[in-house]
């Protein structure tokens, strides 16, 4: 039985963490290496780093950041943001990413998924889907894929895209609710149900979590892992709080020597 993963997400630009993060025990709250180590210490099961650098210098800095984080981190590291080619992916993997997340470039050219899966293996290829709820055409709710960091809506059906992407070789789906992201209203459970029942690969749910009570329902809806940013970054909860809450609800959590014991 796979154990549900709790995955903090770091947004990094030009080598610095973008969103303000408040940990009293960190000297430099903008240092991605220090934050990554802190999250591992708290019991994080994996880390996602999204690089939002817009310039070529920023992209080169991102590789140094990945290497520095890798040096410290003994849990899996997924890196995404601006991956457009297999050369981009190769550079990130070489620097120390274990998985690469692709989004806009895969929508523009789905063969990129097959190229990456063929070269690095499906287990390295995470398809990030940003999905916005659409007016349903039938009895079931529907979602459309949003690209370019949420700035461009497409007509692509999210569940159909997920199935196609897995067919091309995507090994995991990072599913973000465009509507819930930043709302604090909880994960979009209908969306999680729709996507996780459409594909056979693991689904990481993202977007909307603001309290511990939002977590277990997302797992019940079919998510294999839960991504969260704000609830950890603003110091509201530690990863250990999440694990204890899940364990109390009868959900298995990873045994660690430093984190929570079930």
């Amino acid at each position: 039985m796979l154990i549900p993963r709790i995955i903090p997400c770091l947004d990094v630009r030009d080598g610095r963490v973008v969103k303000g993060i408040q940990f009293q025990n960190l000297r430099d709250a903008g240092d991605p290496v220090a934050l990554a180590a802190e999250y591992e210490r708290q019991g994080a099961d994996e880390l996602v780093m999204l690089d939002v650098s817009a310039t070529p210098e920023g992209r080169r800095t991102a590789l140094h950041t990945v290497a520095a984080v890798r040096h410290e981190l003994s849990i899996p590291l997924t890196v995404g943001g601006g991956v457009r080619s297999d050369a981009d992916a190769a550079a990130l993997l070489e620097a120390g990413a274990d998985k690469v997340a692709i989004n806009t470039a895969a929508v523009a050219d789905p063969s990129l998924i097959a190229t990456l899966a063929g070269r690095f293996g499906s287990q390295c290829v995470v398809l990030a889907i940003d999905a916005a709820r659409a007016a349903p055409e039938g009895p079931e709710p529907a979602w459309r894929v949003v690209v370019r960091s949420g700035s461009q809506r497409t007509d692509l059906d999210a569940a159909l895209w997920a199935r196609q992407a897995v067919g091309f070789g995507a090994g995991e789906i990072l599913l973000t609710s465009f509507d819930r992201d930043g709302s604090g209203d909880g994960y979009d459970l209908d969306l999680i149900r729709a996507i996780s029942s459409s594909v056979n690969v693991p689904v990481i749910a993202s977007g909307g979590v603001s309290t511990l009570d939002h977590l277990a329902p997302a797992l019940s809806a079919g998510a294999d892992a839960l991504l969260a940013a704000t609830i950890f970054h603003d110091g509201r909860y530690k990863v250990g709080d999440v694990k204890r809450h899940l364990a109390a609800a009868g959900i298995s959590v990873r045994r660690t020597s430093t984190g929570v014991q079930p």
Binding site: L2, I3, S122, G171, E172, N200, V201, P202, D224, R254
Partner: peptide, 11 residues
């Protein structure tokens, strides 16, 4: 009826 690939933590 399991996810493949197996990606994640297992006992």
């Amino acid at each position: 009826a399991v996810r493949v690939p197996q990606l994640g933590w297992n006992a």
